[in-house]
Amino acid sequence: MADLQNDLRPSATAGDLDDLAEPYPDDGVITAESYEPVSDPDDAPMVRAHAILAAHPVADGYNGLPWALKRLSYYDLELGEGTVGTDVPRLRGGHVGALFWSLHLPEGFDGDRAVGATLEQLDLAKTVARTCDDGLRLAATAGQVADARNCGRVAVLLGPAGAPAIGDSLGILRQLHLLGLRALTLTGVSWASEAGLTRFGEEVVREMNRLGVIADLSGASAQTIRRVLSLSRAPVLCSRSAARAIRPHPVNLPDELLAELGAAKGLCLVPLTAEQTGPSVRDVADHLDHIRAVAGARCVGLAGTYDAGSAHPQELGDISCYPRLIAELLRRGWEEADVALLTWGNVQRLLRGTDFTARAARQRRAPSPAKISELDG
């Protein structure tokens, strides 16, 4: 127990990785200096958008397909499925190279029910991906995402799941990770609340760093966000947050938190939903412009939120519509290097940083034996 108490001191776990030369390696990350523009002799924004996306596809950070498919008795994602917004033809039409499949549950799921429902979604997601192996491939690391793309497949990463899915147990977190869970949203539980992280919540974040599970902070309180930013040695994610300065939605982030997220090398994925970003493609672009200006080009990405029960802006009705958004950004003068970071490079950096931190942490830290009853009781 003494070892555990030492681990819980803020200076202890934080310092373990500080002696490493480069905690967030940037090898292969696209920069303005290294990016070679795609030839576009016609200089038409849509033509340029397709050309850029062919080289640097979209890594979509939030897609609700697993839960949407639970309602269907039959579907065919390979040939096309009109009852959902995501299928293989539309993924290819939108130049999507990777996407996170959300394992979030409807409100009211908690305890054993949340754990069981999350396991069922994991099982369904794996079954769907394996059934559609001509178009989809399961991935858990940055290398596997790149391999899937090189093989002409769309990489599928599992998560985020809601924090109730771990049932206040680090053992369940470890088992979900073994089953493929890649991200966990830190809301809806006693140990990550409006008051911030409890001692057990801090231990959850440390264990996530050790395993390689990304901390998703969309919807978390400002206190929780700031504590995770100071505690986590891996980059963090806001899987579906836009700019509150433009649209005052509670899940959107104020400028001060966006700036802190950018300083911590985190990533804010802007959702393509009318409720959070506005009713038009221009509104979405306004959020992307704002976040890039406040937090930096390396802090912004895309979250389609397709098949998650949300209404989408005009011209962005399904996952094939990404070229329309990229064309709008090009009309606004976005450099091609920044577009490439937005669509692909920033998520790859996040995944590499998470993998790097996990490998280093596992050399220094054994699986945590912490229990919520001991730390928060």
Rank of each mutant, 00 (worst) to 15 (best):
S310A: 15
H312Q: 02
G301P: 08
G304L: 09
V284M: 05
L302A: 00
L288N: 00
A308T: 07
L288Q: 07
Y306F: 15
Y306Q: 08
R298S: 15
G278W: 11
R282K: 13
T305V: 15
A295W: 02
A295N: 07
G309F: 01
D283E: 11
S310W: 14
P313G: 03
T305I: 11
D307Y: 03
I291S: 09
G296H: 04
Y306A: 09
D286P: 07
V300P: 06
V281K: 04
D283C: 14
D307Q: 11
H290W: 14
R292H: 11
G301I: 08
P279N: 11
D307P: 04
D286Q: 05
A308I: 03
A297W: 01
H312C: 02
A293P: 00
D286G: 04
Y306P: 00
V294N: 00
V284T: 12
R282T: 13
L302V: 03
D307I: 02
G296K: 00
T305Y: 11
D289M: 06
Q314F: 13
Q314H: 13
Q314A: 15
S280H: 14
H287R: 02
C299E: 01
S310F: 15
V300C: 14
V300E: 01
A303V: 05
D289G: 05
G304F: 01
S310Y: 15
V300G: 03
G304M: 05
S310I: 00
D286F: 09
H287S: 09
V284L: 11
V300A: 14
R298H: 13
R282V: 08
A295F: 02
A303T: 02
H287L: 05
A293D: 12
H312A: 06
G304W: 08
P279H: 12
G278L: 11
A285E: 08
P279E: 14
A297D: 09
A303Q: 10
S280A: 13
S310R: 13
V300M: 09
H287A: 01
S280W: 12
S280T: 15
T305L: 15
G304I: 01
I291E: 08
V294D: 02
A293H: 05
V294Q: 05
C299L: 10
A285S: 06
G309S: 06
T305W: 10
H290V: 07
P279D: 13
A311D: 13
D283G: 05
D289R: 02
V281I: 14
D286H: 04
P313S: 02
L302Y: 00
Q314W: 12
G304V: 01
A285T: 02
H290L: 13
R298Q: 12
A285L: 00
V284W: 08
V284K: 10
C299W: 06
G301F: 11
V281W: 04
V300L: 03
L288D: 03
V284R: 10
G296S: 00
R292F: 00
G296Y: 04
I291W: 11
A295C: 00
A311R: 15
D286L: 09
R282H: 14
A303H: 07
G309R: 02
V294M: 09
